[in-house]
Design a protein around this nucleic acid. Structure first.
Lengths: 144, 144
DNA sequence: TCCATTGTTTCGAGTCTCGAAGCAAAACGC
DNA sequence: GCGTTTTGCTTCGAGACTCGAAACAATGGA
């Protein structure tokens, strides 16, 4: 009967996610961002080829209209730009601007500073990351 | 430089949370529930004294008007009922109905079946729960 | 009693998410 | 090549979620 540990783990996941959001809210607001738009910014690794809208929608677990909305928020704030994919002119890729890189890096730093996961020691973190990598095949949002 | 593991852990937390939600969405919809309303239902342990609105707002990291909205959703669906707290007649406590108990138990079961965390072995789960309990002091939503 | 505080609700606004429909480009079949 | 289907994105309309400001009743303290 491992039910209790599983329940605790699911609950803890929720807690950590919500607390992290609460703790970085102020920093996000400083750039007129929200959890949803910040996740989108996070999900674009500026050192990788720019992802298409379709890929982004998969990463963020949302549908196409929603991603159009989120992308508009980011472009209005000057953090990303749409560009036509030369290999498929239907597709739009999201290119991060210089400002986008700065804001993303700053907010990532803030997140790592504030996340409750920071209380763990290096060895605990290694252990945790090892376990979680078994759970999620590590192909989602860029892991910096 | 533990930055990488910390980043990976934060990302994994997000991934697990989003995936779990996606996987139980259908089951939630069967009861006209959403992630937000289900979290509220989850956060009420039917074997504990009914929590006040204020306590629930803290558990769900939302403010009072939001919790009024969520509570209305749950009462309209016959899952919880408001009751006046005899010890403080300003306060409303959320009492789960019989139907609420059933639905909560069923959806909790579904969640544990579907969560990606289920791929871990018992010993891995114990390890994970141990680490996460150091991160979140275990006082949030009832851990059933 | 008077007044400040607390717990909740109402109101109005803004954000987020979705399904259906529309459009252009690509891919397919002939 | 040409018509048809599929794909990627956008627009539109609606509903769900969240918040701050203001209102209200009950509490507690001077």
């Amino acid at each position: 009967m491992s039910g209790h540990e599983l329940t605790a783990a699911v609950t803890a996941t929720y807690e950590i996610w919500m607390r992290t959001n609460a703790l970085i809210m102020e920093a996000l607001a400083g750039h007129r961002l929200t959890p949803a738009t910040f996740q989108a910014l996070w999900a674009i690794d500026p050192d990788e080829p720019p992802p298409s809208m379709k890929v982004m929608a998969e990463r963020l677990y949302c549908n196409a209209p929603n991603l159009t909305f989120i992308t508009n928020q980011l472009t209005e704030r000057g953090l990303v730009e749409r560009a036509v994919d030369p290999s498929d002119r239907r597709s739009r890729v999201l290119v991060m601007t210089a400002k986008g890189r700065e804001v993303r890096a700053e907010l990532l730093r803030t997140t790592l500073e504030k996340t409750p996961l920071g209380v763990l020691s290096d060895s605990e973190l290694r252990q945790l990351a090892g376990l979680l990598s078994r759970v999620v095949p590590l192909e989602g949002p860029a892991a910096g």
